[in-house]
Nucleic acid binder design. Structure first.
Lengths: 203, 203, 203, 203
DNA sequence: TATGAATGAGCATTCATTCAT
DNA sequence: TATGAATGAATGCTCATTCAT
């Protein structure tokens, strides 16, 4: 009489995938546990066998999405590319991770993002610490810029501020793209952004 | 003989201010009518003497914030400044309107923004149509860029894409600033952004 | 410095009339104090200078309507008419009192009636005791029928039951007439009712 | 392994029964969802597992009550009885359906009735269209009367008006009976009504 | 005396979570 | 382990009544 053998971890991932699909569609707040259960093709109660709460699912989804990205970014930073190329690679990886999975991630990210914003003072900050994320990201870009300045490739500039602007630009581009998926290809936007940025737009 | 004399308009503004404070803090969805009432130091029922519904308050807050900005932007566009200056003025006005009122607006804006995002397919879209807003804004900037290209000031570029990137950059800058108010002065960021953008960062 | 002289009683009646108008239109439950105030052209608070509560207005309206009718009915009963005529007069008076005032009363009566029905077990029973009203009415008709039997004009019958049936018939007629004001003239219906009743419909 | 097995249809009927009990007692408007829940011995939220809204319960209760009656009436109309008998059967069926279920139905009917009255101009009219009900009923009786006149059994009369009077009489009888359940047996009243009506009360 | 601004109890409905099976 | 029936806390909104002026 062995218990039914189920790969708990696999099922958990299945539920998580389902949840992410619904989160992306309706936003986290508007997603009901019943919706997730339906999407996963299981009963409402079953969710609680794998997750403690809705918030828990949210947190795991968040982690799931960012894990891959962080690794890829690390690889870029360790590479020997020229600062210019490194910058481009960094932004490309970021944008791509948003739109991998057919752009579905992007919608969830937006949800995380707005959730992160509105929960500035609450408990979710422990899970989604946008401030920290931005801070880290700023650091990485700053370093590349610094490296470029030291190597005489970039002109003198306020690296910190420029990093902030670059990150902001990327976020904003993603936002517009999410609001209107047909507006432009994100990858293309990154190129325009970097081209303008690197070369200026003035004659 | 006479009823208590109350400046209904003034009181309405008071409640609106209170609501905006709470919206900024907790986000629109998480704000309860009771919270607004508490913040305004009045009873729950009293709110309904001045506003029809929570959605109504939301809409009025939104209008309240954006009214001034739109007018100022119009003035910039009508001016005779050079494209370069016009671009700078446009972005400055936008950023400033976000941080007028001691930065409190910014928090609410973020709320509107994330609300606009998460409500993409619903009724609030009638009030806050982010897509439309972005579209208009893109149009305005595109025109300036076009003008600059025609006048031989800017080099040839994809005006639409560049406009998108510029808007995105601005949004992203604002977001970071809201998340961490001490990070930089938004006005300063705009300058860095435009400087880099206009002149490039490559030597 | 004499106080403003107001005929309190007159004003009270004015408010009552206004209330009755609204009751007739919307039903008692759905009528808000604000509606009554509006209809009376006064402030909400002023109503409470003349009535203790909404229920109080309801009770007074009820009394107001029935007072006249009861007097008229008393007169009929005291008259020397033949039983047949008395019966007709009684029913005519009742029906007429419902449709005096342009039929406006009828609507309120319906409201009182349904209110009386639905409040069978509550406090309003003290005000509107339908059971008692019906009981009295049955008594009056019974007596007329009895008188007719004694005088050999009516054939032997269960006076109590017949009285009940007659009253019921009248009520039901009024109800249909209220639901569809164009269906028939109430007076005409009473004639048909009594004619059938007195003579039978069988050849 | 299996969820609690519940006969949803049975439970729904249970809740409906409970609701009808409370409706009969307090009227629909005054009945709170909490009352129904208490009466059914369940939690407030559970009601919504079986009904969409309070209005829904109301509509179902209404349908529940009338379904049987309409079928029985149809059977009577299709029968080959003499007009006299048909009339009697029709009224008997109607009255009986009111007092089946120990007279509990009658109270709810009253509630429906008064609800139908007071909501003449609103949305509930879609559920309970008293005018239509009366109109149909009038038609059915008219036909029987007509048939009787054609067959030379009834004397010439205004069939429409007489039908109205008969219906009214029945309603009124029911009302009195509901207000005072000990007053008479409804079936008995119908007999008196028809006897008087068919034969007249005059010698 | 007259007023209407202010109020909070009250209500229908939603939904995350529990738990008997 | 899986389920979904059951639940009640929570929320937006209404309206009779109070009371400062």
């Amino acid at each position: 009489m062995a218990p039914k053998i189920v790969d708990k971890e696999a099922k958990k991932q299945e539920i998580l995938k389902a949840a992410m699909r619904v989160f992306a569609q309706n936003g986290v707040v508007k997603t009901k546990m019943a919706d997730i259960a339906d999407a996963a093709g299981i009963g409402k109660g079953t969710i609680y066998e794998y997750f403690r709460s809705k918030e828990d699912i949210f947190a795991e989804a968040y982690t799931h999405i960012f894990q891959g990205t962080e690794e890829k970014i690390g690889a870029v930073l360790q590479s020997n590319q020229a600062p210019e190329e490194k910058l481009k690679a960094l932004m490309t990886v970021t944008v791509e991770s948003f739109f991998s999975d057919g752009g579905e991630f992007a919608g969830i990210m937006m949800s995380f993002w707005s959730e992160g914003i509105r929960n500035k003072n609450e408990r979710i900050i422990e899970i989604i610490n946008l401030e920290e994320i931005y801070s880290e990201y700023r650091g990485m870009i700053s370093e590349i810029l610094q490296e470029g300045m030291e190597k005489g490739i970039f002109r003198k500039m306020d690296a910190f501020m420029t990093a902030s602007v670059l990150i902001g630009a990327m976020d904003g581009i993603l936002l517009q793209r999410i609001l209107d998926p047909n507006i432009f290809k994100p990858q293309q936007a990154v190129e325009v952004l970097l081209d303008s940025y690197l070369n200026g737009i003035k004659k």
